[in-house]
Design a protein around this nucleic acid. Structure first.
Lengths: 221, 221
DNA sequence: TTGTACTAAATCTGATACAATTTTTTTCAT
DNA sequence: ATGAAAAAAATTGTATCAGATTTAGTACAA
């Protein structure tokens, strides 16, 4: 017997997911207007769920509404990026510290599997797959930290740069480095060497900064 | 000539602020239902702004909605509290580090003023005023860190415990300790002694944990 | 008493129509 | 061209309606 779990999702959530994906994939560009009636027509729903979805995007930092002028896809300045990365750096350090203490052998195996999948995705050159594998790899670490609040905050911070990260993942020059860094993080976690993992994670993040910064500078031209 | 700034606020924001305040002050209790029609009648607005406000509360972690069953004020377990505090501890450390590097003499003066106001509020014994003064004191530090993203995340984390903190601020036994801790933080920032401030801030947070934990255990009985 | 089936009420969800207000665009006269 | 007036578009908010689901209540049988 199988119960039909969660076959239902409120339209506001469907709309929210659709818009978030569109923003993160870059289909909706920063600054682009999010007009209620237009979105309602496009997505084939009424304005009610659209408006609720926009409020949620707002709180996630993916949209910005100016009263009486409507919502638009959030811009991200270089300063914003640096701010986000600074916070992520601190939270990654925390996550890694906790993960070192708590990670199980099962999770370590999962991490290894994800690491391999990342390498395979890189070989194939499928950007989408690379991005997903990277997400999965890091998700295991956040889960291992056993702090859902931390995980959700970091997830949100990651999402904020997702748009730009996607661009730089296209550049194959970084791929080998990423594989090497994941290996270092994995080895460190396996050895439960807190300081080493923290440093590896920090370098992993640092290396993204310049790359993403370039993307932003390109786009603002 | 004075410009009439922000004389207009969308009703959804008015409702959001009203509900958030009610939750943070404890007027709406954890688990209490947030019924659209009832709130609409009570606040004298239609359901549309209510629903948008509920979506915002949801994303702030102050409300929880179960599809087809409506929203309720978010509960907070002891584990949730510990998770939040763990994250705050890490972000406070970051904020303090940045603040040490960047704080100006003007901000230091502001901090001193806020510290004195806190002491005055304690003398008066006005809980509301004590809470506000505490907020203001810490806000100066987050502002000094010059990272709005960090500030907004920490602000949100603070809000999540606001309800419980309010209860423990009522206990005068802690007042002297709080004043002492604020002094230590202030002195450390003035001396730009990063490690000392970090430790002081950490102790400041640690001391809240047990107190707030007690409140939660009381409430869950 | 206990458990099940049915019914009714309450509520959420979503759509639609409408009005008021503000912003944006267009038009037109200078 | 410039600027003011008019028109159009869009946001915001209200009100109302219908459908679906949960919850509560009731009746009934074991």
């Amino acid at each position: 017997m199988k119960l039909e779990q969660d076959s239902y999702l409120p339209l506001r959530d469907v709309v929210f997911n659709a818009l978030r994906d569109a923003i993160l994939k870059g289909e909706l560009h920063p600054g682009e207007r999010l007009m209620e009636t237009h979105l309602a027509d496009t997505l084939g729903v009424s304005r009610t769920p659209i408006r609720e979805a926009i409020r949620m995007l707002e709180k996630e930092g993916l949209a910005l509404t100016i009263p009486r002028r409507g919502a638009q896809v959030a811009q991200m300045s270089e300063k914003d990026l640096e701010d986000v990365l600074e916070v992520r750096d601190a939270l990654d350090a925390l996550a890694v510290k906790e993960a070192c203490e708590r990670i199980t052998s099962e999770r370590l195996s999962a991490l290894e599997v994800n690491m391999k999948q990342f390498e395979k995705a890189v070989e194939k050159g499928d950007i989408r797959e690379i991005a997903d594998a990277d997400e999965a790899f890091h998700a295991v670490i956040y889960d291992a930290a056993d702090n859902p609040k931390l995980a959700s905050i970091v997830q949100n911070l990651r999402e904020q740069m997702y748009r730009y990260r996607y661009e730089y993942l296209k550049d194959k020059a970084y791929h080998a480095l990423l594989i090497k860094e994941h290996k270092e993080i994995y080895d460190g976690l396996k050895a439960k060497d807190r300081e080493n993992v923290k440093d590896a994670m920090h370098r992993h993040l640092e290396n993204q900064i310049d790359a993403v910064r370039q993307v932003i500078q390109e786009q603002s031209k």
